[in-house]
Amino acid sequence: MESLEVPSHQHERSLERRGIGKALVVGILAAGLLAVSLVALTGIQAGRSPAERAATSLAMPIALIWLLLFAGTIACFIRRRVPLATLLALAWLTVGIAFNGSVAGRCLRSLEYPAASDPAANLESTLDAVVLLGGYAADNRFEVPQLGDDGQRLLFAAQLWHAGKTKTLISTGTAIGDARDPSLIGRELLTSIGVPDHVIFEVPGVNTDAEMVQLKAFFEDPPDQWLQLVGATRNKFSAGPQAGGPSIGLVTSAVHLSRAMRLADKRGLTFTPLGCDFNGRPAGRFEFRDLIPSSGAGRTFAVALKEQLARIVGR
């Protein structure tokens, strides 16, 4: 009777599959150990509640991708697939950095318009107008205006009016497509919280640069109603505030304010910077759960990156 022998190539494939399986198991165990360690260290450092939040964060999609990349990196190193392991390691580090709340917060803070104190507290006299840049609200599916992530802009502008810090408000923005213009949505929301309709003016513009062009045209030839409200004659506004011209404040998010002021200067406009939404994080105590990536941090990092790119290209 002839002995049955497994062909050598089949035997090699079987060993290869076993090797890959063992490497993947080790990689997954390593990722699990990393996750458990982060939760445990968070609990030791900050207590049960933060540890529970850390565990929840690790179950979110971005964190799971991060852990899978770590598992893949370990598995490839065990299998001595150095190029692939290096690629996965770089991907793991990229996700860990770009979606890290501490890194994103510090990047955002470095780009925020510098302010030594609360901008509103520095106003010593009443402004002729406060420009409220659009982009902070939109209609929901019921065609009802609702605030977005930058909604603090509108509240801040309304607070300036109610505090007697400005005589008028200028709402800006033009929508692309079938959506309603941000300038009109701004007017509706401002009136809904007690700002009189007759002190609100609208200026179009599909982006910040276009808004500055339209604002320049507005102040070069202001409406008679606006002139009456600020108590001035038309020839007064032929120069900037230093020469007796209008005193205008500009309200937008702190991280966007640097770009807005740069574009205003490009168009020859002089504004008092009034930033809000100071969301950048200062350097603080290290916490282990800060190492867990999140989608929110990724969004913050994207905002900071957008502003940095705008600065590089001079926009």
Rank of each mutant, 00 (worst) to 15 (best):
K216N: 08
S183T: 05
P241C: 13
F201L: 05
L227D: 04
K216W: 05
Q228Y: 07
S171A: 15
D221C: 08
L190W: 01
N207E: 13
D197H: 11
V203A: 03
F237W: 15
Q242S: 14
P182Q: 11
E220Q: 15
D221Y: 11
F219S: 00
P196T: 13
V203R: 00
I185D: 00
V203D: 00
K216M: 07
S238M: 09
Q225L: 09
D209T: 04
A243Y: 10
I170T: 02
D178R: 15
L189P: 00
L227G: 03
R187G: 00
A232Y: 04
D209V: 01
D178Q: 15
P204M: 10
A175G: 09
T174S: 15
L184A: 14
S171F: 03
A243E: 14
V230D: 04
L189A: 07
A210Y: 04
A243N: 13
F237R: 01
V199T: 11
Q228F: 06
V195C: 06
S192P: 01
R234A: 12
G245S: 08
T172W: 02
R234I: 07
E188H: 11
L229T: 05
T191Y: 03
S183V: 01
Q214L: 05
K165G: 02
E188F: 06
V206E: 03
D224Q: 15
Q225D: 11
G240W: 06
I170R: 00
E202L: 13
Q242C: 07
R180V: 10
L190E: 01
S238T: 14
L189C: 08
G164W: 11
A217F: 06
D224C: 04
Q225C: 04
A210F: 08
R234S: 10
I176M: 12
E211Y: 02
L169F: 07
D209I: 02
T168K: 01
V199Y: 02
K165V: 04
N207Q: 12
P241V: 10
G244C: 12
S183I: 01
P182L: 08
L229M: 10
E202T: 14
D224I: 14
T233W: 08
T166N: 05
G164S: 11
Q228C: 06
E220L: 13
T208F: 05
Q225W: 03
F237D: 00
E202N: 13
V195M: 05
V230S: 05
G231I: 11
P241G: 10
A217N: 11
I176W: 09
T168S: 14
R234G: 04
G231R: 12
G177F: 09
Q228V: 08
L227C: 07
S171Y: 03
G244N: 11
G194D: 09
Q242L: 14
